[in-house]
C-alpha cells in the first residue's frame, strides 16, 4: 500500500476529502520547490502533485507551460528533481506524485525511473499522455515498487474503457473536469457535478477532480461529490506572482490554506 493509498484510507475514516496541490519542480528553483512541498504539507495539503517540466506538454495551458519553461531555463532535470524529493523526505512525509509527459520518463528509462523514484520517496506517477493501453510495462514496474499509477477519466471517456482505466489506476483516478487543457477557469461545465457522480459510480477507487479549479467555492462544491480536488494553475500563478517576495513560500501556503475547506 503506497503512501497515497494510506492517505485515502485515512481520509475515508475521517470522512474528509483530499486536497491535492500541483506545483512545477524548479519554478522558481529546486530549493524553493523543496520548501514549498514541506510548507504545503504543513498547511494541510494531502498530496503534492509535483510536475517534472517538459518542453512540449500537450495537456497543459499557458500557466503551467510558462512555469515549465522557467524551470527548464534554470537547468532543471529529472535526476535533480529526484534528488530534491530525496532531500524533502527527511522533513516531510506528505505523499508525492510526479506528473510529467511520457517522453522524459521513457527517455530516462522506465525501469530506472521507477527504481530511482522509489529510492527518492516518490509515491505515485501521473502521465497525461500515456493511456493505460501504452502503459503496460510501466504499470508492472510501478506495482512491484508500490508506486501508484494514476490514470484519467475525462468527460469523453467511452464506457468500454472505464473498467480498463479503473483497473490500471492505483492511488486514485484523476477526473478531468472539462474538455481542454489545464488552467484556472471562472466557470466549470454546468453538468460537472452530475458527471463526477457518474464517474464515482463507475469505480470503487477514489476519484479526484482537476483542471480549471481555482476558488474555494469550486473546491467545496466538487469535494462534496468526489474524493478530492486537484488545484494546479491557480497555485502556480500565485508562486509566479510572489516570486520576488522573500516570504513567497508562506504566502503561497496561506493562499492554499484559503482554498481548502
Amino acid at each position: 500500500m503506497s503512501r497515497i493509498d494510506k492517505k485515502f484510507k485515512e481520509l475515508k475514516q475521517l470522512k474528509k476529502k483530499a486536497f491535492i496541490a500541483f506545483i512545477s519542480a524548479g519554478d522558481p528553483d529546486l530549493r524553493t520547490t523543496a520548501d514549498l512541498v514541506i510548507a504545503l504539507g504543513n498547511a494541510g495539503v494531502d498530496i503534492i502533485e509535483l510536475g517534472i517540466p517538459f518542453s512540449d506538454p500537450l495537456a497543459d495551458g499557458p500557466t503551467i507551460q510558462a512555469s515549465f519553461e522557467r524551470a527548464l531555463k534554470k537547468g532543471v532535470t529529472v535526476p535533480k528533481i529526484l534528488q530534491m524529493v530525496g532531500q524533502v523526505r527527511k522533513f516531510s512525509q506528505t505523499p508525492i506524485a510526479l506528473m510529467t509527459s511520457y517522453n522524459p520518463v521513457f527517455h530516462y528509462g522506465e525501469e530506472k525511473f521507477i527504481k530511482d523514484a522509489k529510492a527518492a520517496g516518490v509515491d505515485g506517477i501521473i502521465i497525461p499522455d500515456l493511456p493505460p493501453e501504452e502503459a503496460k510495462t510501466l504499470i508492472a514496474l510501478a506495482r512491484k515498487a508500490d508506486i501508484s499509477t494514476v490514470f484519467f477519466f475525462s468527460p469523453t471517456t467511452a464506457a468500454h474503457r472505464v473498467k480498463r482505466i479503473s483497473d490500471a489506476s492505483t492511488g486514485f483516478i484523476y477526473y478531468v473536469s472539462l474538455t481542454g487543457v489545464t488552467g484556472a477557469r471562472t466557470a466549470l461545465p454546468p453538468d460537472l457535478i452530475e458527471t463526477i457522480k457518474k464517474a464515482k459510480r463507475a469505480t470503487k477507487k477514489p476519484v479526484c477532480v482537476g483542471f480549471g479549479i481555482s476558488t474555494r467555492e469550486q473546491v467545496k462544491a466538487i469535494s462534496a461529490v468526489s474524493d478530492g480536488v486537484i488545484v494546479g494553475s491557480a497555485i502556480v500563478k500565485e508562486i509566479e506572482k510572489n516570486s520576488s517576495q522573500p516570504d513567497m513560500v508562506d504566502r503561497v501556503a496561506q493562499f492554499v490554506k484559503n482554498l481548502m475547506i
Binding site: P128, D129, P131, E133, S154, T157, I165
Partner: peptide, 23 residues
C-alpha cells in the same frame, strides 16, 4: 490494431482525445 509499426507509432494522447481517435 493500436497503431504500432514495430516499436513505433501508438496512441500517446490525453484521455480526452482517446474517444475521438476511436471514432
Amino acid at each position: 490494431k493500436f497503431g504500432h509499426f514495430g516499436e513505433f507509432g501508438g496512441k500517446y494522447v490525453p484521455e480526452t482525445l482517446m474517444a475521438v481517435l476511436e471514432e
